[in-house]
Design a binder for these strands. Structure first.
Lengths: 140, 140, 140, 140
DNA sequence: GTGGTCTAGACCACT
DNA sequence: GTGGTCTAGACCACC
């Protein structure tokens, strides 16, 4: 079952923490296509946040094709698919990479250390390689 | 001499672009301890932005210990200080790395592609690799 | 200047009406790249709706690359760009076309009449052809 | 015989899919006035859905005058009735056409492409064009 | 002044 | 029960 945890008062907004954790779980193959997400109200109660905050996180996941909503039934893990063009994906990658590298560098990390940490984290996430299905690249 | 460039209309605020570039330049060894920063007015004129914006960027850099002000003389690159413990630095690195990786993964990038892009970007930033001085405890 | 009008109590939610009108205006070349959108609060006051409703509409426009936000400055018309893959665009087109055709048919319209009405509406929107710049198809 | 197919996991609720398909079939002339609908239980078994879902779809169709119930016999295709005036029908058509065109345009489709896709979809629906009976005031 | 996030609580439609 | 929309009002960061 998908376990989500948040820390209030962090620099990252709550809805963003939720989005990232769900994405990670999906990418790591911890959930399967069709699995039900916790209901908006249930997760809100569980995390002690407002249902609207959960709804915002789920909306973001829907727009990126990670989950799908079924009116009156709930949210479910979606079939993976490539939504964005190659160019757009590169653009978005750069947009999140730059602040990350700037922060990493200002923390005093060497370039090689940063690469090592990224590799280490990625290996941990993809510990069971076959679990995470890749979207077909049929649309380039 | 420290060259700063900004792009208006970007999602990142101007003062943030300046802060990041100065941090980058320091980390990349493009400037040395004691080097003078451009004066607030000069840089404001040069970049065609409000002097308050420059002042704000410099304040943030002073707060972070990157530069120091000398009354009546201007701002100068400060002696690097390492505030955080090794553990704290790792924790902070993880905090900014997770959102980045979550975005990268959900954009459909392979682990190796992500590492490649990070390396490429770091190489671009550190064009003269041997110029970057190591902060005292950066190893271990 | 971009004029937005809404009708409350319609089947279409308010935020959707706003989104559609802005898209239309952009596609028809009634606004230019870089033009400022009405501020969230100003439009909310103008339309007598809650600022959150405007914010939701603007967020949807941002995620589709129609507008961009600049913290503390406002929202602005974005440079047009192709965000979605060919496949994803076709999928989304189908998703909105099916309900439209089902409704049109159940209203008793003949296929040819539907096509005629669509053409008529499109001609009206694109009355000044060169006004609407096309995004470059560089990313397929 | 009226063939109904559903896809579970779609954004559109099941009962809506049924309603739309029946309307389509009627408009396309695939069924005639007086034709019997599949019984609620039979269709429920066939589609492997809850009978209540079928009942709800049929109720909606009865409300819209598409089918009629005959106590103890079942549901039958109703005599077409045209409720709306010409002007009202045009207004309603515009109401559903606008969101569709807004989405299509902002997805980057050219006017001609949109028309082509609409035509293609309509041809698929109306595979036997001459079979479609004209409602009385469909002209003008 | 601007946008960004979050809460509390309401009403609606769908299953 | 589920999600979808909207309101009212708060606090924060940025310019």
């Amino acid at each position: 079952m998908l376990r989500i945890q948040i820390t209030t008062g962090a620099s990252q907004p709550i809805y963003r923490q939720i989005v990232d954790q769900v994405r990670h779980a999906v990418a790591a193959g911890k959930v399967r296509v069709g699995d039900a997400m916790p209901s908006v109200r249930a997760l809100a109660t569980d995390l002690v946040v407002n249902p609207n905050t959960i709804a915002k996180a789920y909306s973001a996941l829907v727009r990126d094709g990670v989950i799908e909503s079924q009116q009156g039934r709930g949210y479910f893990i979606a079939e993976p698919r490539l939504i964005y063009t190659h160019k757009e994906r590169k653009r978005r990658l750069g947009e999140v990479m730059n602040p990350f590298l700037a922060e990493a560098i200002s923390l005093g990390f060497e370039p090689q250390q940063i690469i090592d940490e990224v590799e280490k984290r990625l290996r941990k996430t993809f510990s069971s390689p076959e679990a995470a299905p890749k979207p077909k690249d049929s649309a380039s």
